[in-house]
Design a protein around this nucleic acid. Structure first.
Lengths: 151, 151
DNA sequence: GTACCTGCAAAACCTTTGCAGCGAC
DNA sequence: GTCGCTGCAAAGGTTTTGCAGGTAC
């Protein structure tokens, strides 16, 4: 598993290759994302956490950084049922966006790393002549924790 | 294939069972949805089309109707990449939400009726002990039309 | 009369934009 | 000095809410 320092170095290089600078504000934002990789934070939440590290950071800068990182495919932008955008780190080398399990009872979001759609994508490409470049897959249901509690 | 009158009757019954009235405004909104079933309309677009049939209808009423229909599972609310909510009729008897193919070049959205996820859902249920009740699956890529034009 | 529904306007909310200033080179 | 980046405040766009009035029963 890649650690935070390695990830940061990799992202730094990504920005540099695209002629963006890794300013202190951008580094802070990226660190917040790396330290909360599993949390599907919203822009506002990222801003709040960034403010703890760098109190002078502005919300607009966070939005601009998130937009830039999404464009560079460091991040994926996704919206679940509440209608506001959330941001999710794309794993190193991941060809596709990972899947999500959204629990309708507790709201928890679990991630599935492995790509379960290989075969399904083949069907889509062949039957619909649609060239797949990425996907969004979220299952809605009840997580194991809520299932046990319901008993 | 179910026709508009049958669908309207079915939805009318759905509202009645849930103690909602099918007011003229609600009927207009439902008709717009049925007549544009393939178009993934936004609330604003639905409002515009409803206004052609009933010029006095208010935007808030349309929003309230859409919320009610979503709650009754007559509609599914989904947001693609542009961040605003779009509404999609759930097919009669459909257990799950259908899939979408979003073309990144022309923005067109194609629907896939058949459920391609049966096996994948089994894996999710068994491996992650997650009880699946529904899903959202959208493939991003290039539609057949844009592929031919690119040549 | 009561309960539900409506249109309008205002408010709330999330996100983007304009702009003056700052900093690296 | 130029160019990119920043914070702030304002604007923009979507959705929700408060409220007075209307309608069905």
């Amino acid at each position: 598993m890649e650690n935070t320092t390695e990830s940061l170095t990799r992202i730094k290089k990504r920005l540099h290759d695209a002629s963006y600078k890794l300013t202190p504000q951008r580094e802070t934002t990226v660190l917040v994302l790396l330290e909360n990789e599993k949390d599907h934070l919203s822009a506002e939440e990222i801003y709040m956490l960034a403010k703890l590290k760098a109190p002078d950071i502005g919300l607009a800068t966070v939005y601009r950084t998130l937009e830039m990182l999404t464009e560079l495919k460091v991040l994926d932008k996704i919206s679940f049922t509440d209608g506001l955008a959330r941001y999710d780190m794309r794993k190193e080398g991941a060809k596709h966006f990972h899947h999500h399990l959204l629990c309708l009872e507790c709201g928890d979001i679990e991630e599935i790393e492995e790509d379960l759609l290989g075969e399904v994508e083949q069907i889509v490409e062949n039957r619909f002549k649609f060239k797949v470049t990425d996907h969004r897959l979220t299952f809605h249901g009840v997580c194991s924790k809520c299932q046990s509690e319901a008993k």
